[in-house]
Design a protein around this nucleic acid. Structure first.
Length: 694
RNA sequence: GGACGGUUAGCUCAGCUGGUUAGAGCGUCGCAUUUACACUGCGAAGGUCAUAGGUUCGAAUCCUAUACCGUCCACCA
């Protein structure tokens, strides 16, 4: 009876029939969904599985509704993350960046990328994602490179890009600058050291930066230190005596510690600002490897924490350290590798984003984008209001290399080398610089203006702005805000009309899933256990915008089992309705229907109305529950049971209801519904070509 | 310090444009049948909807406060 043996056969059938392909020339209305490009780092996790299940349900629903749907897949090169994964992979083979050199390294990186990519792509297909594979995009491919170059050049020409030595967050492990948004804070218990600075005493947690101090600062309103302001004092340091001035600055909190701070403009953001205001010199004490520089005298070469420990005895001995106390505070760590980041001065590229952000705020305030849940509108606006210039350069090899070329003092912005003797900037662009352009670059942005040898289909006019985008909340600033800013800057339009933030799946204690905790649950496990459709259904029950869910293997198994049973129930219903029918000359639906027929059809009609509404408002969990209850408790338990006494009269209604239900269930359980659908005597080539019954 | 979300059955969660006895899944207990389906059917137990006030004819749902949990932002030298 069943023409398919496995889910993968159904998937192949759909692909072969090109049922996932968008048709830009169609006269149907379009509906476009942009798949967030997963990072090129390996397996898809549960959150991805949920995200993709939601995307696919919406895409399939809109297709059935008669839209020309574009569900566009792609992958992000994920600069820092990929590079550190790859370097670890190389280390296992005794290789390294130093041994390989940039060119060879990149060659191997692309091969490694292909390997990882295969596993990603396989997972997507396994989940049943009805994506248009013919239009798949990778952020480093040529089409994107040209778009990213255009983005850079446009900012550059508009005077929005500048380069220079500024204080940045530096990750000593990844050996690159990172952004504020890539920094996390961890609560740590450390010591607060009280140090004598000439006549004054001040408190610090970082005595090792003492070598970079160029002033002391107090609050101008602080009466205690009024007489010291502007004066210079001789300070005892571990490098001998040194003269230091006291400056007055509003940022100093008179109530913290002694009300006096040491100013280290080279290694602290606030001190850097103070230094600028008071024209203080900058001394670099910590280098890019997180070790002390020659400025630290005999402590040079030590790591920050080593140096701190090593210098305490000497500080005590010289009478500089007068008191220490326990102190709990937040320490900045790299979001990716969790090592402590150091503010240091480095030569980096920046984009002035204030104006771009202002325009984005206006766009959001016009409600051009519907955020789910709604409070993200406010969250994003608040962030955009306080935005800092964007540090876009990273000291990596994996990424879009900064398209700037140097020859002596000459500078040119160009994608390819301008000629002999020109050297390209060594750094690459922040991953989010290209991801932020994703809504445009995926659609062949610039094809209109470019007429080079590269041929890119221009889909922008038809599919932009996107109708639907989904994301985990954790990248709302890194990615979502950037897409809004960038799209608006280049097109004066919103990148997407609906922005769905799904919740985070956590373990039962409310912790994030992570490799280090080992609390992860593989989607592949659930699929193996309960099947794709059941896994998808289990995930839809958690797909409420912005609401986190606590899950364990056990709770997911429970739901998986539940929906696996549901799938079995449907198969049995189909067996009863189609396979075990008692007669072949079934009656057509008559005007004088039985009251049970009227009852179930009426229930169905109202179900369809609710499911349609809930899908349109993206309340997938409600739609799923509703269909489940109808099928199991109205259709099977009541109507089918009653129909057994007058089977022949009921046959038409049985088939009608079952078929309609398969159609409205298809967005959620695509494989099962196709399997059942194919068993009807009269059917289209695929359930995907059916019409939504409303 | 600022913003936001959560607190409902043993567990995981729905419900919250206020309106009859507050729902689901899993779990528990009882009964039934070998049935399209035991990956079943029927039924039961189990909740002062965090707490305290308020609005209302009526509140799990709206308002205020409190407690606890969580997230995000800022970051204190």
């Amino acid at each position: 009876m069943n023409k398919f043996k496995k889910e993968s056969e159904i998937y192949e059938f759909w692909e072969k029939e090109k049922l996932f392909s968008a048709d830009p020339n169609s006269n149907k209305k379009k509906y476009s969904l942009l798949i967030p490009p997963p990072n090129l780092t390996g397996e898809l996790h549960l959150g991805h599985a949920m995200q993709h299940s939601i995307l696919d349900a919406v895409a399939r629903f809109r297709r059935l509704q008669g839209f020309d749907v574009l569900l566009l897949p792609g992958v992000d090169h994920a600069g820092i993350q990929f590079e550190s994964t790859f370097d670890k992979h190389l280390a296992k083979q005794g290789l390294s960046k130093q041994k390989l050199g940039r060119e060879k390294w990149l060659e191997l990186a692309w091969k490694f990328k292909d390997e990882i990519y295969k596993s990603l792509s396989g997972s997507w297909r396994m989940m049943g994602l009805s994506a248009d594979w013919s239009r798949e995009v990778f952020t480093l491919e040529e089409k994107c490179q040209r778009a990213v170059f255009e983005e850079f050049k446009t900012y550059y020409d508009a005077g929005l890009i500048y380069k220079g030595p500024y204080i940045v967050q530096w990750c000593p492990r990844d050996r690159t600058a990172i952004e504020d948004v890539e920094v996390e804070y961890e609560e740590r218990k450390e010591k607060l050291y009280y140090l004598k600075y000439g006549p004054l005493t001040l408190a610090t947690v970082r005595p090792e930066t003492k070598f970079g101090d160029t002033a002391m600062a107090v609050n101008p309103k602080d009466k205690r230190y009024k007489d010291y302001v502007g004066k210079e004092f001789e300070i005892e340091t571990l490098n001998g005596k040194k003269k230091m001035r006291v400056v007055a600055d509003d940022v100093v909190d008179p109530d913290f510690g002694t009300g006096v701070i040491k100013v280290t403009p080279g290694h602290d953001f606030i001190d850097y600002e103070i230094g600028k205001r008071h024209n203080l010199p900058i001394i670099n004490v910590i280098n890019k490897e997180g070790r002390l520089t020659d400025a630290a005298g005999k402590y040079a070469g030590m790591k920050v924490t080593e140096a701190r420990e090593a210098m305490i005895p000497e500080l005590k001995e010289k009478g500089i350290l007068v008191k220490e106390e326990d102190y709990v505070h937040n320490v900045a760590v790299c979001e990716r590798c969790k090592s402590v980041v150091e503010p240091i001065i480095s030569e980096e590229w920046f984009v002035k984003v204030e104006e771009i952000a202002k325009e984005a705020i206006q766009l959001i305030n016009k409600d051009a984008i519907k955020f789910l849940p709604g409070n993200y509108k406010k969250i994003l606006i608040e962030w955009l209001k306080g935005i800092h210039d964007w540090c876009i350069s990273r000291s990596l090899w994996w990424g879009h290399r900064i398209p700037v070329w140097y020859r002596g003092k000459e500078i040119k912005v160009s994608l390819k080398s301008p000629g002999v003797g020109w050297k390209q900037d060594e750094q690459v662009l922040d991953t989010w610089f290209s991801s932020g352009l994703w809504p445009l670059s995926t659609l062949g942005w610039l094809n209109k203006v470019e007429s080079g040898k590269l041929k890119v289909e221009n889909l922008l006019d038809r599919y932009f702005p996107w109708d639907f985008e989904i994301s985990a909340p954790e990248i709302k600033f890194l990615w979502i805000a950037r897409m809004i800013m960038i799209s608006n800057y280049f097109t004066k339009m919103e990148p997407f009309k609906t922005m769905f933030f799904h919740g985070m799946l956590r373990d039962l204690q409310g912790r994030k899933f992570s490799k280090s905790l080992g609390n992860g649950i593989e989607p592949g496990y659930l699929i193996g256990q309960w099947g794709v459709d059941a896994t998808r259904m289990a995930l839809y029950t958690y797909s409420i915008p912005g609401r986190d869910g606590r899950v364990s293997k056990q709770t997911l198994d429970e739901r998986g089992k539940n929906f696996r049973n549901f799938a079995t129930k449907i198969r049995n219903i189909a067996r009863f309705v189609i396979e075990l029918r008692t007669t072949d000359n079934r009656l057509p639906t008559t005007d004088n229907r039985h009251k049970d027929d009227i009852w179930i059809q009426d229930k169905l009609e109202r179900l369809v109305a609710r499911v349609t509404k809930n899908l349109e408002s993206l309340e997938l969990h409600l739609a799923v529950e509703d269909i489940y209850n109808f099928v199991w408790h109205d259709f099977a338990d009541k109507y089918i049971e009653k129909s057994k006494t007058s089977r022949e009269e009921a046959q038409a209604t049985l088939e009608y209801v079952l078929k309609q239900v398969m159609i409205i269930l298809h967005p959620f359980m695509p494989f099962l519904t196709e399997e059942i659908y194919q068993q009807f005597d009269v059917h289209r080539k695929s359930i995907m070509l059916e019409k939504w019954p409303l």
